Simulated scan of single mutants.
Amino acid sequence: MPLKSLEYFESLVKQDDSIPLFETALAIAQDVYPQLDLEACELEIDTLALKLQQRLPADASHIQKLRTLNHFFFKEMAFAGNVNNYYDPDNSYLHRVLATRRGIPISLAIVYMELGLQIGLSMKGVSFPGHFLMKLTVQSGDIVLDPMDGASLSREELEERLEPYLEQQDYGDELPLGAYLRAAHPREILARMLRNLKAIFLDAQRWQRVLDVQERLVILLPDEITERRDRGLAYANLAYPQEALDDLEAYLNLRPDAEDAPELERRLPRLRADSGR
């Protein structure tokens, strides 16, 4: 991957309080589409937002804006979940989502929230278990939306969606529903997006793609040593022994008692031999 692409990504995520979510998520696609014209994509979303804005009266309420946005996004523009090819990596690349009008919850939400932002709606992403959601806070409370179809979800529906997750996790004391509906920080949203891609590429054993994703995750989450471990494993599978050693030894130095430490320790002698150490 060109270094310039990673440097640009790093510049976007440097400051916690000013990460431009749409622009940064869009840049992730440069791993696979290095010639991607980011400015053209941003112009496209700006043009859609202007078209939407022109339909709204100057005194439009948040509810009016939300209804107009929902109709525009899901009815007119026909954005929807790519249910027939859910695990296609293109579902996570925003320029492809814009072109095909198909995506997964998190990518659809990022496009939807950017349009909302440009018409004065402070939409927030919700990193709900298993299915990314959106919410808008109005005077009467929070409106929680499904990015796949724009449906407003009731408390009962949300609890029903949460139940299988709680059973899987085997929690003794369940957290209140509100704990799962907090607004996600842009850094969290980007990490979830990248980890979705990582899971797809790991499953297909596409190690160069895994490495591309890991480079971004290490930049995005510099304090998450497990992401550096995973980058080291990608390096090892691509036969970059020195780079793999640097990452895996850093992980083991910080997590000598980790559950996977013995297995990783067994890999080190071969990597050292291959690197000439």
Rank of each mutant, 00 (worst) to 15 (best):
L194H: 11
I28T: 03
P256Y: 06
E159T: 03
G150W: 07
V111E: 07
L221R: 08
E188N: 10
T226F: 13
P241R: 06
A273W: 12
P241L: 10
S275P: 05
D257A: 14
H62T: 10
Y171M: 08
V97R: 02
N196R: 09
D146I: 00
R102K: 13
M77S: 12
H95L: 11
E243F: 08
F79M: 05
S127T: 03
N237I: 08
R231V: 00
H95F: 07
R272H: 12
L202W: 13
E243R: 10
A199N: 15
A250W: 05
Q15D: 11
V126Q: 14
V97I: 10
S5P: 00
R229L: 13
L153N: 10
L271K: 04
A236P: 01
L254F: 04
M113C: 08
I104F: 02
A239L: 13
E167G: 01
V111D: 07
D246H: 09
E174C: 06
L190D: 08
A80D: 14
V32D: 15
A273G: 11
R55Q: 15
Q205T: 15
I104M: 03
L52S: 06
E39L: 09
K75Q: 15
E157T: 03
P269F: 01
D59I: 01
T137P: 08
R277T: 03
Y112K: 04
H185D: 09
R187A: 02
D16N: 13
L153P: 07
D212R: 14
P129K: 01
E259P: 05
L268M: 04
I28H: 02
R272M: 11
A244C: 11
L245W: 14
E7H: 13
L117T: 10
D223R: 13
A80T: 12
V138H: 07
M134V: 07
E76K: 00
Q64Y: 04
Q205P: 10
A261C: 05
P269L: 05
F73L: 11
Y171G: 06
D146G: 00
R216W: 06
L50A: 14
M77D: 15
I189G: 01
R192G: 14
G125R: 00
L98D: 06
L94K: 00
E160I: 00
R209G: 03
N82E: 03
R102L: 08
A58F: 09
G141E: 12
R267G: 12
A273F: 11
Y93I: 04
P129Y: 00
Q64L: 11
P20T: 04
L26C: 10
A40I: 08
A183P: 09
